[in-house]
């Protein structure tokens, strides 16, 4: 990994600069600047925990499908089996695995999202 600066530090620096100039922007650009700043924060979180999250997600998919494989391949197989109706909400362990995977992704995408009950 490249350091001095690390990628997350670059993202953080750009986000800070955007936050500095935001108050001087017109409403439309101020809104887009906030979105841009949020995007950089998302990149920062993904750099910090994305790889670990994908490793865990792959393990959970392996558990549901009963075989090893790369994340994209297992994810595609699960989608195909859900489409075909081979798996459904009653499949043991399925909802719990999907929930854990989505919560991990949500912690990168929108850590402050307050989800349904």
């Amino acid at each position: 990994m490249i350091t001095h600066p690390k990628a997350e530090e670059l993202a953080q620096a750009v986000a800070r600069w955007i936050d500095q100039i935001r108050p001087d922007l017109d409403p439309r650009n101020a809104f887009l600047a906030r979105v841009a700043s949020n995007a950089l924060a998302t990149i920062g979180r993904e750099l910090a925990s994305g790889q670990a999250g994908e490793r865990l997600a792959t393990e959970r998919l392996s558990g549901v499908l009963g075989r090893d494989g790369a994340h994209a391949e297992l994810n595609a197989e699960l989608c195909a089996r859900l489409r075909a109706g081979e798996f459904n909400v009653d499949t043991p362990g399925l909802l719990a695995a999907l929930k854990a995977n989505v919560l991990d992704q949500l912690s990168i995408d929108q850590p402050n999202y307050r989800h349904e009950g």
């Binding site: 999907l98 949500l106 995408d109 989800h115 349904e116």
Partner: peptide, 14 residues
Amino acid sequence: RRVSETEIDLINLM
């Protein structure tokens, strides 16, 4: 990146 918010809500409803 807002798709995951709908996914967690859908899981909770199901």
